[in-house]
Design a protein around this nucleic acid. Structure first.
Lengths: 225, 225
DNA sequence: TAAAAAAAAATAGTATTACTATCTTAAATT
DNA sequence: AATTTAAGATAGTAATACTATTTTTTTTTA
């Protein structure tokens, strides 16, 4: 049995729902491929149009600009990851075990899960690592936030924050620790691969080391009191 | 007595040394002002030229492109901050006290120190918070790193990493913790001001809270073992 | 000091990007 | 079958990111 989990996207992110047509799905697919290949700065709608077999105007009917497409893809990823987390931590009692599972899911290479053939989750994970912060590090962050474009990201952090509070109710900074874990799961991987001297994983270059670091950070940091 | 601390910049960052002419200094000054005002994406050499009283080509004689200018400014900031840290932790014996001082310097609003009248350190600090990561979150990070453009940042993290090791020699992740502190000193401030639900400082919006969080993270995290 | 060389600055231009407006064709509705 | 409606292609524009060329200024040196 093949079950399809559908992610409900914020309608403000697109002009026309890309999931509703073949061209739309191609735009998502090649959007991921091209941003991954060229980086977000060098990514243009013209290149995307060529790959998707349409014209620039064809893309503009779906997305207002490339920033909206990035917001769409990052939102999609965070919502997808939150589902993964809920699924994999379901029926787990102990917050310790849950937290460890979350950290593992955050920092592990994603296996393309075949559920959505127009989005390659593995490439998208790598995009999140190197381009994800650019979704909010802008002058329009306030407006974008008003339109709830960061809701999936905030929801994910809230979920993780709750597990932290469950684990240690008196801890004063569950939300900040949650966002720290999420950001560092990505930044430490980026540093490990690109600026290794900023990490302690330069030789091995293993995700497991990043996971160990984050576990240590969380569980030593919360052990007392 | 007014002493001038000169920061030696990597020559690969510029085509012509901006500190060597009046126009060059204006470019740095208005570069900071405009990036702060409009954000890095909306910042163009044309606007910078108008403010600086020259033409686009005038700017191109100093910097190859705006990415190089961002690298210049971030490098300058990290080198400046490292000096501040060395100065303020000088003669402090205890690594605990040193670390706390470092965290405070990282997360505190910078007072424009008047030493360099062409660079507003306070605005530059804010630029680092919202644009700093864009200096390395690029496809060219490897090449830029080969040319040592991130040396000041890596040096700063190494300095902090050493203090951590001094404090707790057996700790396995001094470098990763150092880069985590540096990044989070900025990200938590950004989140506090723009996406407050990702932090526990939403109501107060005080840098002191970020400092407390980081102290807690470091000192509870390292207390045991 | 005048001519030559070098450096700095201004002018003009191009390719690409980001986006708009319009026109054509196809699909859906009445 | 006529009429909306929507989808898609074509053509165009303003701005951006550069480059190339020419002019002016400064410096060097004969």
């Amino acid at each position: 049995m093949k079950m399809q989990v559908h992610i409900q996207m914020n309608e403000g992110l697109f002009l026309r729902n890309p999931e509703g047509s073949e061209l739309g799905k191609k735009i998502l697919k090649y959007g991921v491929l091209l941003i991954h290949k060229n980086g977000f700065e060098a990514f243009t709608f013209k290149k995307l149009a060529e790959e998707s077999g349409t014209t620039e105007a064809g893309i503009y009917r779906y997305f207002e600009n490339k920033h909206k497409l990035l917001l769409y893809l990052t939102s999609w990823y965070w919502a997808w990851l939150e589902f993964q987390i809920r699924f994999h931590t379901n029926n787990i009692e102990k917050p310790t075990v849950k937290l460890k599972k979350v950290i593992k899911l955050l920092a592990s290479t994603v296996a393309d899960d075949e559920q959505t053939n127009y989005i390659n989750e593995s490439l998208l994970h790598q995009i999140i690592i190197s381009e994800g912060s650019k979704a909010y590090l802008t002058k329009q962050v306030g407006e974008d936030n008003k339109q709830e474009f960061f809701k999936p990201y905030k929801d994910l952090c809230a979920t993780i924050g709750s597990i932290i509070s469950e684990y240690r109710p008196k801890y004063k900074y569950p939300k900040s620790l949650a966002s720290t874990i999420v950001e560092m799961a990505h930044f430490q991987i980026f540093f490990m691969n690109n600026l290794p001297s900023l990490t302690d994983f330069g030789k091995s270059r293993q995700e497991e080391d990043v996971i160990s670091f984050l576990n240590d950070l969380v569980f030593s940091g919360l052990k007392k009191g």
